[in-house]
Structures are given as structure tokens and as C-alpha cells.
Nucleic acid binder design. Structure first.
Lengths: 345, 345
DNA sequence: CTGAAAGCGCTAACAA
DNA sequence: TTGTTAGCGCTTTCAG
């Protein structure tokens, strides 16, 4: 079927190791005769030789492949990061296996096992952190395989992590609203993942930072079970708008859990006659590029996706190079982008 | 490092082939003694044995891996499809290598070569069809590797294709606008890819279908060179809005190339004082779930992403099963979703 | 400078 | 029922 080292060796009248040395010239300081070298190279080129990476992987105990596990591609932020990671890894000669865990720890652990049995050289796990169910990660930490965890910080894990400081992002957004004399409501999906926990932390901290009581902070949880397939966060935001105006007659500001939620939220608020930003201020989360064209343009916490991708790949590369796992922590602070939706006048 | 067949064989006091037979019991009707079987299974379970898929792949000439090449993850439609494809393939025991070609035929061809050298069992190529530069696909067609091309139909290729009938989608959208007595402008990115060509075809066909002259169809090309990184289609739509009102004083309807373009377009039109849908009707393309929460809710051509993914995997699976490529053509018709942006009153 | 030998971990064919 | 032999395609070590 495809041309092998042997095919070339036969045609060149040499043995396979010789051909191998020629073709991997750069790596080993291969000492091969000039004549043979040229002859072999010519034949290889002419026959379109490409090394069988499976055989090579078996022999070298190194596959130049990386397993990348994401909880889902359905958010544009993740997909952008994923794309960047893939590009950066490719530049270092790695190909990536992708796995979508749907935020399920069970599936995540499944992928880890399968990717390891495929002998990946390293693993990137971008799951939305489950509060529990991290036993497979602990096992992984001990296995000595290069791993980088990203997206949400999972405390108490001996694994390199490159994460966004969601709490700080939430704090900034909330502070921005408080500073305008409003009393923001935090809108989060129901459920106990770390991302939500950190939003709440930052949200309440902004209250106490400004001399208010944490108990003043109102938190509204969206019923995620109604989330269809594909997930429609805007629709959830839309419903939440009606719930919010019913629950809080004095509603004057909302910090939404994502830009998509904010999109639906703003529409819903308009349906109830609220003007944005005149009646209600809104801040989103993600920094979707299109949010600048929402009605009105949405203030948001911008996820540093490109930087995140770069740091993930850097952290992984170091482990790959040193052939040992690290425990470094990189925490990136997301920036607040202020647009019309959160500023009067 | 990790436990091998041999480790188990030694511990069980048998040879590796025996262990292999036990562990692959289902496949071959392996005839192994009940006692040995149980002993081996117990040891394998206890030691947490997982077959080395690289070795297995080399031996079996079959890696249960698929290469998936997309032009970019940056559109939600593609990412949804990708996610579905990955899930479906996983269900059949395949893992996927991902490659993002950025719509560049050169990179695409690069990935094809690299994935083949990794001995993938099949390939899915979801590139936005380049009009030229398909020589690598022609070579691929001859290679006998199972391949499915998707997203945009590339004529004259001996490769299985599962595509969306973009022309028909464009025809329907245009017809919908014409039927309301408007004279829609087609908004497309500049450049010569097949997707644009097909939009134009369908657009003009709607004109002739309704007894109009094709020359009445106005086409506006957006300067894509201004497209930043990450790509901001809304921003392009925003700019286009101003160009359109300047170019066509009687502007009364626009068929945009994507929902994101439409988002920016609608914002831009409002900036110039146009009301949507009262002054200008707008239809998008993609069927993004969030477009129902745009202002106003956007009419759009819905890409049948899930069906597309299913058909892609089906077409590929058939080739994998029969161990031979096919040339089947599946063309899916996208549906028009009518919302407020394209209907007066 | 090149060849011979060995083996990565696995499975398929055949013997015993 | 089990073991022996062999080899997937490649690279590494060691002789020559």
C-alpha cells in the first residue's frame, strides 16, 4: 500500500537502518556517505515516502500526539482557545486528539484512559471544573504524564493549571455596577460547578469591598434542566429576565453568566418594558467578539483566550521537554470591557 | 511504565498470545480454558491493563482513528457539526485527530498527508471549498482511503460528499424577500470560494424564477482583508450597512452571508436611521440558535448541522466497513426560518 | 561509513 | 487448549 523504508532500501541497494539515518539526518548526527545519502533522498522524494508514525511511535515510545479534552465546543470562547492550542501544538510537531466530555466527569475520565492507551505524549483538560469527582485527575497526577488543566481552577491538585481568575472577573464586573449606585443581581446557571462558585465569591466580595453587606448580594439561579440540545443560553436568559423583574421590582442591574445569556436577558428585559442601560444595566461574561454589535453593545468580562492558549501550550511544552510533570499555577485576569449596556448617558 | 500483555502473561504463567485471546474474547471465538481465562481476566483487571493502541494499530493495520480537517472552528455552525461528528465516531470506537486549515488549501493538504502517515482509517474534510487547488483531493481520491467531504460541494471529484445545498438555501431566502415586493441585495464576502459562488447562483435564480431579470440582482462584496484576528464578521456587516445605504438609496432588503454578518448589518442599518423590518428586511444564514434573540429576531437559513453530522458519519462508516471509498452525493436542503427581521407587520 | 541484530507491544497463523 | 513462530515499520546499538 504505502511506501516503506524497506521499499526504499531495496531500491537503493542498502539496508533499512541506513535509509532511516538518512531521512532523520537532523536528529542524530548521522554519518552516512554523501553518495548514498543523495541516492536515498532522491528515491524517497520520488516515491513520496512518509514515515509510518504508528511504527515510529511504537519504537520511540513517543507519538507526538496530545489529547485535548473539552467539556463541549458549544461555547465560542472554548472553541477559539481550542483552535489556538491546536495551532500552537502543530507548530511544535504535535497532532491533537479531541474529546468532548459534555462536562461529565465520567466521560472525561474515559477519554483520559483512552488517550493514554493511545500513548499520547501529553494531555490538556479544559473541563468546567466539577466540584467532586476528581479522583481520576489525582490518579493522573501520579502517573507522570504531562498534563495541563485549564479553564477553571481546581484546588488541591498536583497538576499544572492555567486558568482564568473568574472570581476576579466577577468582582470587577460587580464593582463596576456598584460604583454606579446600582444593586446588581448575579445570574448564574443552577448547579455546583467551580465556575459558578467562583463567580459568587467574586460577586459577594465586591459587595464587602465597598462596605456593603454580602447579604445584600442577590443571586438568581437559572434552571439548566430546561436547556435544550443544542444548548440555548439566550433562551435561558430570556426566561430569566421575566423571573428577575417579577422577583425584584427594584431591579436595576444584572451581571449575567455569559454573553449569550446576556443577549437573551436584554431582549427579555425590553419585553417587560425596561430600557437598557437606562433602567437596567447589564454586564456579560466571555468577551464574544460579536457582543459589540448586540443591542445595545454589551459590556463584558473578556476571557483572554489567546493568552490562555499560549500559556497552556507553554506549560505543556515545558513538561514535554523536561519529561516530567509540573505543578505550576498560572492565573490570568480577565478584563472588563465597558460598552453601552452598563453605562447611562 | 504501563502494564503490558507480557506483564500479565508472566504473572499468570502463560504466554502473551493466550492473554491476548482472553482479552479480545468477543472478536475471535477464542478457545481458552475457563480457568486460565478467569485468572488472566482477574490479573488484567487488578493491574488495570489497557492495550497499547499504537502497537495494536501497527499490528492490525487499523488505528480506529479518523482525521478531521476543518477550515476553522470560528463559526458556531462548524463547531456544532464537529462536536456531533466526534460524538458519533466515538460511539463506533473511533477517536479523532483534528486539524484546522484556516481555509488554506496548502495547510489542508498538509494535514491530509500527516494524518495519513499516522495511519488514520478515514478522513473527514470540512473545508470551505476552494475553487482551485484540489489536486491533493484528486490524489486522495485515488488512494483508496475512506474520505467524506462536507460543508460545500466540490464538483468533479471522485469522493463521497455530504453537503448543504447552499444555492437552494439562498434561493429560498431571496424568494422570500422578493415575494414581499422587495429588491434584496446579496451581501457576500469578497473572494472566489464555492460557497459564495453558490449563494450567487441561488440568489440570481430566485430573480429569474419570479420573472425578473438576473441583472436586477444586486451583489455587494465585503472586503475581507479588513477581517481581523479573531475574525469579526459582525464588524464587517456593520461597515457593509453604511456602504449599502450609500450605494443603494432605495435599499429595502438584504440577504446576508451569515447570522453574524446580519447582526452587525442590522446594527449598522439602525445607525443610519433604518428600521428593521419596516424599512429594510434582513435574512441571515446559519441558523445560529442565538439569532432568535437578536434585535429584532433574525430570519435565517438554518444549516441542518446535526443531520449533516449524522450523514457524514454514516457515509464514512459505510466506507470503513466495506473497506473501499464511495462516491455518493448527499445534498441537504437548509430550511428558511422566518422571524421578525424579514416580515413587516 | 554501513550492515546485522534486536525489539517496541501486539495479534494471526500454525503446531503441538 | 495452549505455546511457538513470525512480523507490522521503525530506530537504536553494536559490529564490521
Amino acid at each position: 500500500m504505502s511506501v516503506t523504508l524497506k521499499d526504499i532500501a531495496v531500491e537503493a541497494g542498502v539496508t533499512t537502518p541506513t535509509v532511516s539515518k538518512v531521512l532523520n539526518a537532523s536528529s542524530t548526527s548521522a554519518r552516512v556517505g554523501q553518495a548514498t545519502r543523495e541516492r536515498v533522498m532522491e528515491i524517497a522524494r520520488r516515491r513520496g515516502y512518509r514515515a509510518n508514525q504508528v511504527a515510529r511511535g511504537l519504537r520511540m515510545q513517543r507519538t507526538t500526539s496530545i489529547g485535548l479534552i473539552v467539556s463541549g465546543l458549544t461555547t465560542p470562547v472554548r472553541m477559539r482557545m481550542l483552535e489556538r492550542i491546536e495551532q500552537l501544538l502543530l507548530a511544535s510537531g504535535y497532532h491533537v486528539f479531541i474529546g468532548t466530555s459534555e462536562g461529565c466527569a465520567e466521560k472525561e475520565s474515559q477519554y483520559v484512559k483512552e488517550f493514554l492507551s493511545r500513548q499520547v505524549d501529553g494531555l490538556v483538560i479544559a473541563s468546567r471544573g466539577h466540584l467532586t469527582q476528581n479522583s481520576h485527575l489525582e490518579r493522573l497526577a501520579k502517573s507522570g504524564v504531562p498534563v495541563v488543566l485549564t479553564e477553571v481552577e481546581v484546588p488541591g491538585l498536583e497538576i499544572a493549571q492555567v486558568v482564568v481568575d473568574i472570581a476576579e472577573g466577577a468582582r470587577r464586573a460587580t464593582r463596576h455596577l456598584l460604583d454606579q449606585g446600582r444593586r446588581p443581581v448575579l445570574l448564574v446557571p443552577a448547579g455546583d460547578n467551580l465556575s459558578v462558585a467562583q463567580r459568587i465569591t467574586g460577586f459577594l466580595q465586591a459587595y464587602t469591598d465597598t462596605g456593603r453587606s454580602a447579604s445584600e448580594g442577590r443571586i438568581h439561579r437559572m434552571d439548566v434542566s430546561a436547556l435544550g440540545e443544542p444548548a440555548s443560553w439566550p433562551r435561558l436568559g430570556l426566561a430569566a429576565a421575566h423571573e428577575l423583574v417579577a422577583a425584584y421590582p427594584d431591579l436595576d442591574a444584572v451581571f449575567a453568566s455569559s454573553d449569550h445569556v446576556a443577549l437573551g436577558l436584554m431582549r427579555g428585559l425590553r419585553q417587560t418594558g425596561r430600557q437598557i442601560p437606562d433602567d437596567v444595566l447589564v454586564v456579560g461574561f466571555d468577551g464574544l467578539i460579536e457582543s459589540e454589535c448586540y443591542e445595545p453593545p454589551l459590556s463584558t468580562i473578556e476571557q483572554p483566550q489567546d493568552l490562555l492558549a499560549r500559556e497552556v501550550v507553554r506549560a505543556l511544552s515545558e513538561q514535554l521537554r523536561d519529561a516530567k510533570p509540573s505543578r505550576e499555577r498560572v492565573s490570568l485576569v480577565p478584563e472588563l470591557i465597558v460598552r453601552e449596556s452598563s453605562q447611562v448617558g
